Simulated assay, not measured.
Amino acid sequence: MNTGHIVTSFDKELDDIHTLIMRMAGLTESQFAEALDALCRMDAELAQKVRANDAQIDDLERELEQEVVRLIALRQPMADDLRSAISALKIASDLERIGDYAKNIAKRSIAIGQVDRKPSFSPIARLGRLVQAIFKDTMDAFSNRDINRAIDIWHRDEEVDEMYTSLFRELLTYMMEDPGNITACTHMMFIAKNIERIGDHATNIAETVYYLETGEQIEGKRPKGDTTAFEV
C-alpha cells in the first residue's frame, strides 16, 4: 500500500474543504455588504439580487457537507483531522445562517422603501460596519489558524451587543414620539437584530477556530451586552 499517496490524497481533500469554506465565506461577506448597501441606498434591485443569490450559499453548504461526510466515511480521520472535518461543518452552518440574515435585511429594505417616512440609516450603517469588520477578522483568523485573533473577536461580541441595544432604544424613542414612525422603525429593529445575530454567528466561528486549534472551548462565559430583553 502506498501510504504516502494516501496521506497526500487526504491532505488534498482537507484543502478542498478549506477552499469551499473560503468560497462560501467570500460569497456570504459579499451578500452582507450588498444587503447593507441596498438598505442605505434604498436600492430595491440590489436587494432582490441579494435575495436571489442566497441559494448559492445554500448550494455551497450542501456541497461542503457532502465532502465532509464522504471524507469521514472513507478516511475515518482521527484527532486533529477529525476536528478539522467537524469544524468545517460547524462553520458552514454559521455561514449559511449569516447568509439567511443578509437575505432578511434585503427583504426588509424593500419593505422600508415602500414607506413614506424613513428614519436615518446612519446608526444602523455603523452597526453594520462593525459587524462586517468582525466577520472579516473571523475568517482571517480561520484562514491563518490564529487563536489570539479568535479570542479578541470573542470579546468584541459585547461591543456589538451594546451598539445594538443603543440603536434599539433610539428606534423605540422614535416610535413613542410619533406613531407615524412605527412601520419603518419596526422594520429597522428587525434589521438591527439580524445584524446583531450575524455578529453572534461570526463569534461562533471564532469559537470554532479556537476549538480547531486547541481541542478545547474558550474558557468563561461569552461577554454579552444586549439588554433589550429588559426594555419596556
Rank of each mutant, 00 (worst) to 15 (best):
R51F: 04
I105L: 05
T28L: 07
A55R: 15
Q66T: 09
D116W: 01
I21E: 02
D94R: 02
R51I: 15
A44T: 15
R108L: 12
S30R: 15
E61G: 07
V115K: 08
S84P: 12
L64Y: 02
A38R: 06
Q114T: 10
L27C: 02
D37I: 12
T28N: 13
G113V: 06
E61Q: 10
L46M: 11
I98L: 02
G26C: 00
L82I: 04
M42P: 12
V68Q: 03
N53T: 08
A33M: 13
A92H: 08
R51Y: 07
G26H: 04
A111I: 10
A102F: 09
D81H: 10
D54G: 01
S87Y: 08
L95E: 10
Q76F: 02
Q31C: 12
I91H: 09
K49M: 11
R70P: 06
L60P: 04
D81V: 03
S30Q: 14
V115Q: 05
L60A: 04
A79V: 10
N104Y: 11
I86M: 03
L74Y: 12
A92T: 00
Q48I: 07
S87K: 00
A85D: 06
Y101A: 05
L95Q: 05
I86T: 14
S93H: 10
I110V: 08
L36V: 06
L27H: 13
A102W: 04
L71C: 05
A106G: 02
P77D: 01
K103P: 05
I72M: 08
A33R: 11
N53W: 07
I57L: 11
L89N: 02
S109Y: 09
L46K: 14
L60K: 08
G99A: 03
I91G: 07
L36H: 09
I86N: 07
A35Y: 00
D59E: 15
F32M: 05
R23G: 12
I98A: 04
